[in-house]
């Protein structure tokens, strides 16, 4: 399967700029991608999940995972106070231990971006905001673009957009492509993360097509989920997306990041993802600029495991913030 994939990528190298010329060329390119072996992908993800990571390797993985966290709060009940508390936690996740690294980014709704920008000033922590009528994306394009521009103007340097799943599932790929291009333009210098919402795409073939579509349209990151539908990030879905970014770099030379989001709650889960990254895309992706976790409760579990390694006794949730 991999050989076929690489062959496709190589033949595509010359005409990748041309694939979005028309609906027909885009469709034939996306449908020409090799199909995903569902059983094989699930088996490989399950097999890699059994790897045992211990002692110093575990300590390294936990610190890396903390540096990869996009500390997220996306609730209707979010207040400026909660966002400030989250920003403080992002700067120093474990106040009891100065050696604990800061997280990669804080992710909030556009209305709270000014609060977060103020709280994060000078910290070097990125500020991500979901835009484009998150989580459904079911708003007119003009509204979604205005949403994006407002978030960037307020200080967000990373934008998490949702793709138009309705158009994608109906087969109107060019519409999805052009919308991503338009949002990318509205982002300016801000990084664009494209949320595929894999739980609504149903098949791995669709995940692979949506990944390529988003990368062709200029995504800096491809992200699994909004966290607002029942099925969020899974290991096999992330495996398919990691294969896509690897093959895309082989074809074009551009390196796109991956962000699984939703449902990753324990340090053990996070380490499984890191193993998957290393074995699928390679070490180049083991960096916060190339791989992120969209999560909220994950950070506390990482901190508990970190404390356990440092102190030698099991820690408890009482010693970390409620957020």
């Amino acid at each position: 399967m991999l050989a076929r994939m690489t062959a496709t990528a190589a033949s595509a190298r010359s005409d990748l700029t041309e694939v979005a010329r028309s609906e027909a060329t885009l469709r034939s390119f996306l449908h020409g991608l090799p199909g995903v072996d569902q059983v094989g992908a699930e088996q490989r993800a399950a097999m890699l999940a059994t790897r045992s990571i211990k002692t110093t390797a575990k300590a390294w993985a936990i610190d890396l995972a903390i540096r990869m966290v996009d500390l997220t709060t996306l609730e209707g009940a979010d207040t400026p106070g909660k966002v400030r508390a989250l920003a403080a936690k992002a700067r120093r996740p474990d106040p009891a231990d100065p050696s604990c690294p800061a997280v990669a980014a804080v992710c909030v709704y556009p209305r709270l971006v000014p609060v977060a920008a103020e709280a994060l000033r000078g910290s070097g922590i990125h500020l991500a905001s979901v835009a484009t009528a998150f989580p459904s994306g079911q708003a007119p394009l003009e509204v979604r673009l205005a949403d994006t521009r407002a978030a960037v103007a307020a200080g967000a340097d990373e934008i998490d957009m949702v793709i138009n799943r309705g158009a994608f599932l109906a087969g109107r790929y060019l519409e999805v492509f052009e919308e991503i291009v338009a949002v990318k333009a509205a982002c300016g210098d801000a990084h664009l993360k494209v949320i595929l919402e894999t739980g609504e795409l149903v098949t791995y073939d669709n995940v692979r097509r949506a990944s390529w579509l988003a990368m062709l349209a200029g995504a800096d990151f491809i992200k699994t989920s909004t966290g607002k539908v029942p099925v969020a990030a899974t290991l096999p879905v992330t495996l398919v997306m990691l294969e896509a970014v690897r093959d895309f770099r082989d074809a074009t030379g551009r390196q796109v990041g991956v962000k699984p989001a939703g449902g990753i709650r324990t340090a053990k889960d996070a380490i499984r993802y890191l193993v998957l990254v290393n074995e699928t895309a390679g070490e180049d992706w083991l960096h916060p600029d190339r791989f992120r976790f969209g999560a909220s409760s994950l950070l506390n579990d990482l901190l508990m495991q970190r404390t356990r390694l440092r102190t030698g006794v099991y820690s408890g949730p009482d010693y970390f913030t409620l957020d």
């Binding site: 030698g312 006794v313 099991y314 820690s315 408890g316 949730p317 009482d318």
Partner: peptide, 8 residues
């Protein structure tokens, strides 16, 4: 000893 040291 693990139970006695457990912070929770």
């Amino acid at each position: 000893p693990w139970l006695a040291g457990h912070m929770d």
